[in-house]
């Protein structure tokens, strides 16, 4: 079976600045749950942005489902089945929850048919809070609710790959755990997930494999359980 996502020799930079990523290689199988961990400014967000094409200039190759993404316009990538929930959530502040969700299906093309209603229902089941708040503006939600909305919006695409950048950032511990339960649930429904998290122990407990990114290079990779027991990981990221 070929990988769903295959990143090879990927370098990235902003403008004329120094490279932020150096020859990164990463693979993610169909329906796999992979996490990328690393310290602040290691380049995790840059890696995710390179995949969806919003931000850095890249060299190297990013293949999705066998297709070279670097040749695809950024706005054409969601249509291939890639949903990216960016760091900081980026919900549309002056649109209702419903409108935010509806626009998540934009790449599926126009007419909101019966399929859209069913997807909306599935998302409301996953995040009941969104149903309660559905007429409220995105900008008026709490951080946790905004994160659920951002994920729900991504799921409206019915993606094959869901990219999540620090979904737990700034959320209360209880909400963080709930959120990770939801991610496991989403993964169980067959969506491949690429998760970047600050909360390393939580990330490694839900993902099946992990990569450690340090100053723009992958320095370690392996099954999540092994990384969790790795002394270098424990020392650097778990503070043990």
């Amino acid at each position: 079976m070929t990988a769903l996502l295959e990143v090879a020799r990927l370098s990235a930079r902003y403008g004329r600045g120094a490279p932020v990523l150096h020859e990164v290689a990463l693979e993610l199988g169909q329906g796999e749950f992979v996490t990328v961990i690393g310290a602040n400014t290691a380049g995790k967000s840059t890696l995710l942005r390179a995949i969806s094409g919003v931000g850095p200039a890249v060299e190297g190759s990013i293949r999705f489902d066998g297709r070279e993404l670097t040749a695809v316009a950024p706005h054409a990538r969601p249509k291939l089945g890639i949903a990216h929930v960016p760091e900081g959530r980026h919900v549309f502040p002056e649109m209702s929850v419903e409108e935010n969700l509806a626009i998540g299906a934009h790449a599926r093309g126009g007419a909101p048919g019966g399929g859209a209603a069913a997807r909306l229902e599935a998302i409301f089941e996953l995040f009941p809070r969104l149903r309660e708040r559905r007429r409220q503006f995105g900008g008026t939600l709490s951080g946790g609710e905004q994160q659920m909305l951002a994920i729900g919006r991504g799921l409206m695409l019915e993606p094959r790959l869901l990219i999540l950048d620090e979904p737990s950032l700034g959320l209360a511990p209880m909400i963080v755990e709930e959120l990770h339960d939801r991610l496991v649930e989403i993964h169980r429904r067959g969506v491949a997930i690429l998760l970047v998290e600050q909360n390393v122990s939580l990330a490694l407990s839900v993902a099946s494999r992990g990569y450690v990114l340090q100053s723009g290079s992958i320095v370690l990779e392996g099954p999540a359980g092994e990384l969790l027991r790795d002394d270098r990981v424990r020392e650097a990221y778990l503070g043990i």
Partner: peptide, 18 residues
């Protein structure tokens, strides 16, 4: 709606395929 999304957050709009 896509135009309003572009006004409110161009990066997020791109991620929506706009």
């Amino acid at each position: 709606r896509a135009m309003r999304a572009t006004a409110q957050d161009p990066m997020a709009a791109t991620l929506m395929g706009i």
